[in-house]
Design a binder for these strands. Structure first.
Lengths: 203, 203
DNA sequence: CTCGATATGTTTACAGTGACAACATATGGC
DNA sequence: GCCATATGTTGTCACTGTAAACATATCGAG
């Protein structure tokens, strides 16, 4: 049919057509990549299975060979989003050299990620976890570990580090969500200031 | 046809069949009430126009006489949700007698509302404001005024009250969202402790 | 190398959705 | 009493997620 070769393939490259091992190479990866791209482009249109499949050059129902249903696909996208967020936070932590500055940097990276990729961020956190996927294999591990490490390193002599960690997380998460939902305007200086109030303003 | 009288009317009472002024009485109000009820019952099923119309005892397309489209209907529901949240916060503020304790109470009420009515809370904040409805006529006014008043009264000599207000709002909002999305467990004592860190723990 | 088993992709079809147009009916002012 | 108008209904359309039946490529065993 040759309909596979001249597929439009506007997006969804990166992990697509990985030589000729299987029909497509590695669908699933390609679908996830295409999904993230589509989310990143921010067209408010809910990504539908048909559109996604067309992006990847495959017919709609093919996706069901790799995901039991749409929810599972979204779960996979959400997980990948969390992984990216964690990576950005780790990068920010390292670039700032750890310590107070590093901890604060991870917080700002959190909010910036939400601002840069609103759809991905919302999707990543809106999927209520568990119920569908049992604990473990969570893409948010990196971020969570960074949070714990940051608290431990920044305020070592604290009676309740859990409370402090939760406080920090809730702060940046709320900031991110409020910006995302247009409750407040994005403003880098403002974010730094607010985050600094909790994440160690003196550093 | 008498199909209107024997409508199931499981939910959606409260403002329904308000005597015989018009066909239904006051649809719109009835629809909003039914929608909130359906959201409150927490059945994860996205509320559809047909189901909502059936709840109220009316045929699906009748809703289009009162809302231009589904989005507008959801906007109305969101607005009503914000109004209720504001009312609960005001009540909490009064019950605690204002001041530090009152301010903290409004914060806790915020999180508790999200926990009690997750669907309504999420809907209320997920609708990105403006774009669709111009500023003004916002159901969140009460809550916002409480926030400003609380900050002003609790920490009067502050260089930047805006930052403090944002800090407080982001904290409770993030806490609410994290609980809603099952990132953290609901725990009244924990909420009080975390909120206390920012809202005046000494009071 | 041939051949079946299996994994992957396609076609067709179906129920459900939001939305529109045309039609029906009650309300209220003149 | 009568008509303009607000409200509610029926029928229909494009679209969506998804399942069943069918087609094809890949790989291991003989």
């Amino acid at each position: 049919m040759a309909s596979k070769d001249n597929s439009v393939n506007i997006k969804g490259d990166g992990a697509a057509k990985a030589a000729g091992t299987y029909h497509h190479g590695d669908l699933r990866a390609a679908v996830i990549a295409a999904g993230l791209t589509r989310l990143a482009e921010g067209d408010g249109t809910e990504l539908g299975l048909r559109a996604l499949a067309r992006d990847v050059g495959v017919s709609a129902t093919a996706l069901y060979r790799h995901f039991p249903d749409k929810e599972a696909l979204l779960d996979a996208l959400a997980d990948e989003g969390l992984r990216r967020l964690g990576a950005l936070q780790a990068q920010a932590w390292l670039r700032a050299g750890g310590g107070h500055a590093g901890f604060k940097a991870t917080g700002i990276a959190y909010v910036r990620f939400a601002y840069d990729e609103p759809a991905v961020f919302r999707l990543s956190f809106t999927r209520q976890m568990s119920e569908r996927c049992e604990p473990g294999a969570d893409g948010g591990e990196v971020g969570y570990n960074l949070l714990r490490a940051g608290v431990a390193q920044t305020m070592p002599n604290l009676e309740d580090p859990d409370t402090a960690a939760l406080h920090a997380w809730a702060l940046v998460h709320g900031l991110a969500m409020l910006i995302l939902d247009r409750r407040i305007e994005w403003d880098e200086a403002m974010v730094e200031e607010v985050v600094g109030l909790t994440f160690g303003g003196k550093a």
